[in-house]
Design a protein around this nucleic acid. Sequence first.
DNA 1: GACCTGCTGCGGAGTG
Length: 928
Amino acid sequence: MVFNLLHVAVREALKERGIEEPTEPQAKAIPEILEGNNVLIIAPTGSGKTEAAMLPILSKMLEQGTENAGIYVLYITPLRALNRDLLDRIRWWGERLGFRVDVRHGDTDKADRQRQSKTPPHILITTPEMLQAVMTGRRLLGHLKEVRWVVVDEVHELAEDKRGVQLSLALERLRYHVGRDFQIVGLSATVGSPVEVAKFLMGVGRPFKIVMVNVVRNMQLDVVRPWPSEEDVKLAESSGLFPDVVARLRLIKKLVEENRSTLIFVNTRSMAELLGFRLSYLFPDLPVAVHHSSLSKMVRVSVEERLKKGDLKAVVATSSLELGIDIGHIDLVIQYISPHQVTRLLQRVGRSGHRLTAVPKGVIIGEDINDVMEAAVVVKLAKNGFIEPTQIPYKPYDVLVNQIVAFLLLKPRWRLEELYEIIKRAYPYRDLTIEELRRVVKFMQDLYPRLATYFEDSDTVARPRGRGFYRYFYETLSMIPDERQYAVINSKTGELVGALDESFIAEYGNPGVKFIFRGRPWLITEVDDRSIKVVEVSDPSGAIPSWIGEEIPVPYEVAQEVGRLRRRVREGATPEDIAREYHVNEETAKHIVEEVKKHEGPLPDDKTVVVEQFRENVVIVHAAFGTLVNRTLGKLLGELLIRLLEKPVGVHQDPYGIIIQTSEALAAELVTEQLEKLAWMEVREIAELIKTALVKSGSFKRRLLHVAKRMGAVDKEADVYSVSMSKLVEAFSGTPVFDEALREALERDLDLSHTVEVLQRIKAREVKILYSPQPTYLGEVLYEKLSHRLEIIPPERLRRLVLDSTKARLLNYTMLGVCLECGWYGLVRVGEVYELRCPKCGGENIGVVRVVRSDNLEREVRRNYEEVKKTAEILRRYGWLGLYVLASRLPLEAVQEVLAQLDGADINAVTERIQELEKEYLKQRLLD
DNA sequence: GACCTGCTGCGGAGTG
């Protein structure tokens, strides 16, 4: 019994808690940690991982003593919300055993921070970013000298991210600072590459043990595709929804009612809103709420608490509830629509049933038949033990720059060789050469303001003079880029039509571009740093859908397996075979078989690419290679065809096919030839070709900008609108900024290595290319899916669409309200009638300031206080109408003037006048 | 024949 190995005081505390039996990860991990090993614990959220790590550490603290003042344990989690949950959990043990436990992150107030630096806690819970800051304080650095244990929670989340790379270098720096090694315990959900993740956590050359709990083994997984019953049809008629939709909603209701507590995961925020809306619309008595990142922190916390208390029976969530935030016990997870990836499925379903004996239960509800096939494949892969491999960023230069600055803050001068030896121990930089490091350091010297000074003769790097150096560091504590949102404003009416992401603006945000938004075509007339102005047009031809980005990427392995499933059916597998092999019920299996059989002609599968002459000017390449490979292939084919034809070539793709379209005729044979040509190209040539195509894209500009900001080469305030693409590319070409942006794009947006593998299989004739002179069934399905994006919705359908329409994007339009009398501040929702009284002191002198999506409201208040004061007057005089005014982006002075003229007029008159004013204003700006 | 069209995360210290 492993608990007997623990210190007697810990055992007594266990008894007090009523814990008698260890969970599986605890039983396996406790002895290893007690022996002093570095350990990575892989087990689902809620299986007692925190205690598995902390009980032996507490036990060792009691044995070894903690006489010196200082921090003995660092507990790092990627979320502030987890920090808070853990504080409650660990503090209980601290109180029993005589250790101070504290938390420190962006929301921690000044008094607490000061208290901590004077009287350090024995155990400090914090975020990776705050660790960066903590390591610059003289006093706190002294406290850190005592660090003996570091626990990193949710390692899988950090390992794939630059945040994690930053942490890996911070831990190496911490080791240098304390002058010895410390014991590391990592906690992770199920991952595809446990050894890689462990190496990432521990650093190069340090031994470790991995403790793994097999989650899939007793996970209960089902894929269902409900068919409408008579009752569903009836309800559909009365509710105005479609029978299929009603069938799915009623299935969800039934499942929610059968269980005590259910999590419903969806893939997008708008789907969360839509599903939440429809459930409460059809079943007003069903206690369901919605949870995603566009909702304010207050709303989210309240949803979490109501679920925990049992006031809510279910929550519809995006990945916002994937990590281990405490929401109490969950009996069932519903995944609405295919999760696309095995890791996502396991992580999400793993949130249910975590008591010792409870079985995690997951039901995937498929939407259409393709969706069901993919879901079945994901389940099969999971059951077979497949998980997508973990991709750890490979020696990113931007994080390196950031951390060299941090090293220079710790010690003002370094021999490059010494620095190099430390950096190389961080796993992402295992292959870094000293020449590369020197190049990056020289680049830092060339920046203005300088981020480093390099001395050639002694080969040393030193801290530069001046404030710019410190400013850069404190402004760049985080590797997460600030993503801006742009208001879409109807320049005729001045109405706020909605909001678009930076990614769309980067790619297409130019005057003259036509795009589809909220079901209608619009023309961009003007773009500035916060909004785009548009006019409605009638002709949708050539318009770009505003949601142009694809869905969550479907991995290569999943897409290939879907191809194999098609082949199984073509080779004569019966519904019974399919049901057995793919864990779907027989009804679903029967439909899968029927669907595949509808396809006549050559069938695209895992080993067959079919090039189809779909229209005279449209060629479809059926390829079951997944999102990233198809995107790469699409770019390559597009680039070759543009060179050949010297005219525009449109390329769209999804995980199972690529659609190529030209203005004039395009022969399928020509596309086949290009594919063959690619298969015979050298890898180096392919890489060059893809780089050429990549650099042209707007998304590359965006990456370049983010990277440049992280490297201190571009001001933090710059945005995709204010910086010219060509200048950016020109300025950074040949520098580490450019190299890093390219590397990141190749690593995240494309998949060159699997593409090369596919091309080699084509060359070796393991993958056949077949030709179809006519449109096929699967071609129709694919074309339909990608082309109806451009469809215009007739007015009679618009009403329902508006009724359903999600406010997810508009929810981002939250404003910050500040009471100028008592200092209260909080979020104010645009468009809601707002009581202009301070909830705290009742005062009416409240100011509002620009859209924020920040949890750190205090900082926003500090930054924007002057603007807040200006708006307060407008609001006090014009009530909630003032909010509308402020959201309309008219200059404040102009609004003030008109409102003063119309003082006392009724609201409609004022609204009308403001709209007129906006029109004039916009017209004038257009003429300018 | 319509329903839908990627998510999440962070943010100075210590002294004056």
